[in-house]
Design a protein around this nucleic acid. Sequence first.
DNA 1: CGCAGCCTTGACCATTATCAACGCTGGTGG
DNA 2: CCACCAGCGTTGATAATGGTCAAGGCTGCG
Lengths: 248, 248
Amino acid sequence: MSGTTEAIVCARDSRPDPCSLCAARHLSVCNVLAEDGLRRLNSISDHQDFGAGEILVREGDPATNLFNITSGAVRVYKLLPDGRRQIVGFLFSGDFLGLATGDRYAFSAEALSTGSACRFQKKSYRKMLVEQPDLETALLDRASHELQAAHNQMLLLGRKTAVERLASFLADLAARDRRAGGAGRIIQLPMTRAEIADYLGLTTETVSRVTSRLKTRGVIRLLSLHSLSIEKPAELAELAGLDAGDGA
Amino acid sequence: MSGTTEAIVCARDSRPDPCSLCAARHLSVCNVLAEDGLRRLNSISDHQDFGAGEILVREGDPATNLFNITSGAVRVYKLLPDGRRQIVGFLFSGDFLGLATGDRYAFSAEALSTGSACRFQKKSYRKMLVEQPDLETALLDRASHELQAAHNQMLLLGRKTAVERLASFLADLAARDRRAGGAGRIIQLPMTRAEIADYLGLTTETVSRVTSRLKTRGVIRLLSLHSLSIEKPAELAELAGLDAGDGA
DNA sequence: CGCAGCCTTGACCATTATCAACGCTGGTGG
DNA sequence: CCACCAGCGTTGATAATGGTCAAGGCTGCG
């Protein structure tokens, strides 16, 4: 089903054992979903490597595939007819792509960097769901989390200022780093300023200006164009409007 | 489990048979979810009537209940510490409230008008999911749709102009009316201008001005403060940027 | 070393927010 | 039954945030 693909994959990665590599990758993903679904997942999925800029999903196309990102990063976005773009999310290793999918994709997805994904067919996926209620429960949980994240992003896009948006974004990345076992101080930005802008509902220029302002205020320190250090986490959190605030 | 509540309910509605009424309401909702889950749903749910402004869910509270709205309308929103509000959705009859819920509510929900809901406990809900895979599948489908709607709203909030936002909103309401069997020409607005503004990431004044502009251009006609007629659906759709547009 | 693409900074501008005043409407009490 | 009041909605004038246009700097790759 995926023999040649995996061979290519693993040659590219210069690893000795293609199958064990893929199995290992599948394992790390599927563990999250449902341990006892592992064998079945492997049997209906194949492995896909992708290069920077590669299109995984195109808005409007029939939704045939779903993906688990196993390495690298992906941007998920929607376009208006005149080209205005809204990035609805960045996906990283372990993230699932395709929960919000009906018969056709309602978004596009492109690789931000080289990476890889565990890809499976929507058809098999449906069958699998029926046979694997645990998997379904796990997916429902994920959908629930994604929905919460979407609500937070709506709050950001609808009601926050430029500074608050960028601060929220950086705080989110820091939290993600902490969840992944990091200290949440050094942040990698694998995306361009234009992509950050399209995620936050701003322009490149504004992202750049606000970044400068945060730098001047000593809240962050740029290590390079695509990585920075958070010098004052508390101040960043305050700027982000993190206190949940329910009444008053 | 809910005898007195139902009695009150049905007295208020001046219907002769409380239980059959509630069963009927449950039926209409639960049909959508899973027909064979009906009896179980009835056994673990109760009925709640609510008045305008009543709080169903408060952000930050432990998430004990989930709801199916059976009549009336509800606003779901998030607040920033300083009081800025983002309404993340309006719910109407048949909508489910609580998909995006973890241990605690991450949003508040208040009744827009009088109405009623089928309420059940999160605890029972979890058990029910395990026992009713069909129900889980239905909820996953709904979550998927909600996620798509959330993505559309992000596009709206991040990239659309005030006119496009209002046009999109009205077009959505028209589509909803069509799905409910209506002609999609006469639109009810059970919410205030301020609520529309907080949903679209605008101010009351801007909503008012843009409404006037659409009225002047003959795209819509106000029937009253809370209902209007769409005179030029095609123009409205164009203003909303409905063409899905994937490239170029 | 040079070029292309990305990023930054600056000057100016437009959209929408803010502040303010007034009109409408529906409910209530005289 | 009418009048008043409170809340909501509309409209206008002004201001501010962020967008647009433009120029120049950095960086990484060929």
